[in-house]
C-alpha cells in the first residue's frame, strides 16, 4: 500500500468517526482540513488575482487605475484596527451596491420572467393545467398581506400540497447522489486500503 493511500484512509476514518461522536481524531482532522484548505485558496486566489490583476498591470502595462481597487482592498485591513474599522464600509459599499445592481435585472430575467414564460402552456393538456394551477397557488401561498382563510386559504393550501410534492421529489432525487458519494468513499476503504473487494 502506498503512503498516499494510508494517509487518505486514516483521514477518511477520522472524519467518519464523527458519526459516533465528536472526538480527538475528528477534531484533529477538522483543524487540519481548515488549515490546508485556507492555504490552498490563499495560494490560488493570490496568484490568480493579485498577480494577474494588480501586480502585472502595474509593472508591465503601467495601468495606474488598478491602484484604486488595490487601495480599496488595503482599506479592508482597517477591520483589524479598533477605531478606524468604519472605513472598511467604503469598499463594502462598493461590493454590496454593485452586487445589488447586478442582481435586479438578472433575478427578474432568470427567476421571474423565464419561469413565467415557461409556465404559459396550453390548458387543454393535463400538464399545462397542473403547471399553471401549481405555479399560481404556490405564489398565493407566499402572499403576505392577507391571512390564509376562506377561499384564499383554500388556494394557499393547494399551494402547500404542490410544495410538499416538490420537497418530497427533491429529497428522493437527491438521495441518489448522496448515496453514490458514500459508496465511492467505502469503495476506497474496501478496495484501495483494505483490499477486500475488487
Amino acid at each position: 500500500m502506498s503512503i498516499e493511500t494510508l494517509i487518505a484512509a486514516v483521514l477518511t476514518l477520522a472524519i467518519f468517526s464523527f458519526l459516533y461522536k465528536e472526538n480527538p481524531f475528528y477534531r484533529a482532522a477538522e483543524h487540519l482540513l481548515v488549515g490546508v484548505s485556507v492555504g490552498y485558496y490563499l495560494v490560488i486566489l493570490v496568484e490568480e488575482t493579485i498577480w494577474s490583476k494588480v501586480a502585472r498591470p502595474l509593472a508591465y502595462d503601467q495601468n495606474w487605475i488598478v491602484i484604486i481597487p488595490a487601495v480599496l482592498g488595503l482599506m479592508m485591513f482597517l477591520r483589524l484596527s479598533r477605531n478606524r474599522a468604519y472605513l472598511t464600509r467604503i469598499p463594502l459599499a462598493l461590493l454590496i451596491g454593485a452586487g445589488a445592481g447586478v442582481s435586479i435585472p438578472a433575478m427578474l430575467w432568470a427567476r421571474v420572467l423565464k419561469q413565467m414564460s415557461a409556465s404559459m402552456l396550453p390548458l387543454y393538456t393535463v400538464s399545462g393545467m397542473i403547471v399553471l394551477v401549481g405555479v399560481i397557488t404556490t405564489i398565493i401561498y407566499f402572499y403576505f398581506s392577507r391571512e390564509q382563510e376562506g377561499w384564499f386559504g383554500y388556494l394557499a393550501k393547494t399551494g402547500t400540497y404542490f410544495l410538499m410534492v416538490f420537497f418530497g421529489a427533491t429529497f428522493g432525487y437527491t438521495v441518489m447522489s448522496r448515496v453514490t458519494l458514500l459508496i465511492g468513499r467505502m469503495e476506497f476503504l474496501l478496495t484501495d486500503f483494505l483490499g477486500v473487494v475488487g
Binding site: 399551494g159 416538490f166 427533491t170
Partner: peptide, 26 residues
C-alpha cells in the same frame, strides 16, 4: 409536472424578494 410547478412558484417568489431587497440596499 407538479414538482416543476412548485419550483417555479418558489423561484418567482425568491426573484421578487431578491429584487426588493436589492432595491432597499441601493
Amino acid at each position: 409536472n407538479p414538482s416543476t410547478a412548485a419550483k417555479r412558484g418558489i423561484l418567482i417568489g425568491i426573484g421578487l424578494g431578491s429584487i426588493t431587497t436589492a432595491l432597499r440596499v441601493i
